[in-house]
């Protein structure tokens, strides 16, 4: 038996199993597992209607997020990832199960769960600083203290000099940075981000991802990150929660084998590619990304063959 010629073997067959972890990665996960649980989802269920007309959006989801963990949620569209985080944020109500934050059952929205939305939800009538101070003032801080703290948070996202600008004067990436500062100023136990960079162009998005990693490193915060971008999930997170559709359910909770600190060069490293391949398999297997053939016949004038 001869060994196969490496030039003809498809790259994916050369990739290690996504469950293989380098010693330092394994050690890191061991440490994470020792940390206290911040968020605990138990048998979460969401459905509409009754009897035959009943549609199940979320089918008994259970998972845990530990302190300072970065958990990404990916899944095909319609798998209920947005519903899941809206329930965790308290903006929607579950029809069954419970959400525990530090062991306490959550009811309704609250400042302990910060949220960054995909759309720009800065208050247009407030300046950048006013937006960041919004939560601080609600917590009864004096104007002076709120002002000082707001500047610290703006400094963190490197927007201090834009403190007096109005949101309409900012670019999309800047707006999201303000939104992150605004959410973090409340010092939430968990930061929930719903496709926060989805509306940004590729370059700004890459920049924002690296910003987010830096922020996460310097602030004691746990992040729950929704995305449909598999590379984004693999680049940012500790663990990736893969959801399936119809009904929305957990397909797999994957420990990310890519070592930290993360760099963009890792996008073509073996662990990164093996994780990405697994994610793609899981999501495509769900049928959402099936290639659709258009019922086209070639137009007579389209002479050139492009394939």
């Amino acid at each position: 038996m001869s060994t196969p010629d490496p030039k003809t073997v498809p790259i994916r067959d050369l990739l290690p199993d996504y469950r293989e972890q380098l010693p330092e990665v394994a050690a890191r996960f061991a440490r994470i597992r020792e940390r206290p649980v911040i968020l605990s989802i138990r048998g979460l269920e969401k459905s509409y209607g009754h009897g035959d007309a009943r549609t199940v959006v979320l089918d008994r989801l259970s998972f845990e997020v530990r302190r300072r963990e970065f958990l990404s949620v990916v899944g095909p569209s319609g798998c209920g990832k947005s519903t899941l985080i809206r329930i965790i944020a308290g903006l929607d109500e579950a029809t069954g199960g419970e959400v525990l934050l530090d062991g306490q059952r959550v009811e309704g929205p609250g400042p302990d769960r910060g949220m960054v939305f995909q759309g720009y939800t800065l208050f247009p009538w407030l300046t950048v600083k006013g937006n960041v101070m919004f939560g601080l003032k609600l917590r009864g801080k004096s104007k002076k203290a709120a002002d000082r703290e707001a500047f610290q948070w703006l400094d963190l996202v490197n927007l201090e000099e834009f403190a007096d600008a109005y949101p309409h004067e900012l670019s999309g990436g800047m707006k999201q940075r303000v939104a992150i500062a605004r959410a973090l100023a409340n010092e939430p136990r968990i930061l929930i981000m719903d496709e926060p960079f989805g509306a940004l162009d590729a370059q700004t998005r890459a920049q924002m991802q690296s910003y987010l990693l830096q922020i996460w490193k310097s602030v004691d915060v746990t992040i729950l990150f929704i995305t449909h971008d598999l590379e984004e999930a693999a680049y940012l997170s500790d663990r990736v929660l893969v959801m399936g559709a119809n009904p929305g359910r957990i397909v797999e909770l994957i420990e990310n084998p890519v070592p930290r600190p993360r760099r963009r060069e890792q996008f073509i490293s073996r662990p990164f590619l093996s994780l990405k391949r697994r994610l793609a398999e899981l999501i495509h297997a769900d049928g959402a990304a099936e290639e659709l053939k258009l019922p086209l016949t070639m137009r007579p004038c389209a002479e050139d063959s492009v394939e």
Binding site: P109, P111, F123
Partner: peptide, 9 residues
């Protein structure tokens, strides 16, 4: 909703 997640009610 953004205001609610910031603790306003």
């Amino acid at each position: 909703e953004a205001a609610q997640t910031l603790g306003a009610r």
